[in-house]
């Protein structure tokens, strides 16, 4: 077998693994639904997808998807920008790192439900998911970025200090490029968390035009197939986000040829 054919087979096999996993989940679902025999508790695969396609024919579904994606992205972008700013400041000034550490630890430990309950009191239903997303995602991203900043070679930092390289240039030409692969990994691992937290907050805040409210209404009308339909939509959105981050990671790897020898 030629090298090109081997490569093609390998690529085909690596695509088959996730398809196999998906087929296994669907089979398990179908068996469970057949065993339970009650559409209200566990709807069949067919009923769920019929419900899903019906939902996709409704304009409100797209408004809900758009609203949730926008809120999740806004909360995530704010958390990423803040985490990046605080992590870089902490990396540049050791006393700031020590000052930020207890705040980050507290934010990591605060239960999400506490944040949701307090945000329900403080903010409107449209802003509340943003606050909850930010408060949940920020400490996770901050910890990941602090670890990334700590991994920047101390000898390079010393070189930049001896050459008196201005802080702005150090941040953009030394810290950020060296941190880039870990930033991408941090983004990848927190994106799915972001979507989950945003939807949970939307359910409790009853935010207009949101997947959360769509799920809650479906639950109120005992439309289990539609709840699962929304779940499938959330999973697809998560997968799309994952694909996007993978593409960005590939570009970052191409742009920054990182080698241990420096």
């Amino acid at each position: 077998m030629s090298a090109a054919a081997k490569k093609r087979t390998k690529r085909l096999l690596s695509a088959l693994y996730p398809l196999g996993a998906a087929a296994f989940i669907v089979a398990l679902w179908a068996i469970t639904a057949a065993a339970v025999g009650e559409e209200l508790l566990v709807p069949s695969v067919g009923a769920t997808f019929r419900g899903l396609f019906a939902m996709l024919g409704e304009g409100a579904t797209y408004a809900a998807i758009g609203g949730t994606v926008l809120r999740a992205l806004e909360g995530f972008a704010a958390a990423l920008a803040a985490a990046l700013a605080f992590a870089l400041l902490a990396a540049a000034f050791a006393p700031l790192k020590k000052t930020f550490a207890p705040f980050a630890a507290i934010m990591r430990s605060v239960p999400t439900m506490s944040v949701i309950m307090l945000a329900l009191l403080w903010a409107s239903s449209s802003v509340m998911p943003l606050i909850v997303t930010f408060m949940t995602v920020f400490p996770v991203l901050y910890s990941a970025l602090i670890a990334a900043a700590d991994s920047v070679d101390g000898k390079l930092i010393e070189m930049a200090r001896i050459y008196r390289v201005p802080l702005k240039k150090r941040v953009f030409s030394l810290y950020l490029p060296c941190m880039a692969p870990q930033i991408v990994e941090g983004v990848r691992s927190t994106l799915s968390l972001t979507l989950k937290v945003t939807i949970a907050a939307e359910v409790l805040a009853q935010t207009r035009d949101s997947i959360g409210v769509g799920m809650m209404q479906s639950q109120s009308f005992l439309q289990t197939d539609r709840i699962l339909g929304w779940t499938v939509i959330a999973i697809v959105l998560g997968a799309l986000a994952e694909l996007l981050v993978t593409a960005i990671a590939a570009v970052v790897r191409k742009l920054y040829v990182v080698d241990k020898r420096s």
Partner: peptide
């Protein structure tokens, strides 16, 4: 100017960019 025991080049920058990074200011 400082010549270290190791080259201490920023891996994400090209050779020329490494020089510019250290001295352009």
């Amino acid at each position: 100017a400082y010549l270290f025991q190791e080259p201490r080049l920023v891996p994400a920058l090209t050779a020329r960019q490494n020089v510019v990074f250290a001295v352009s200011h």
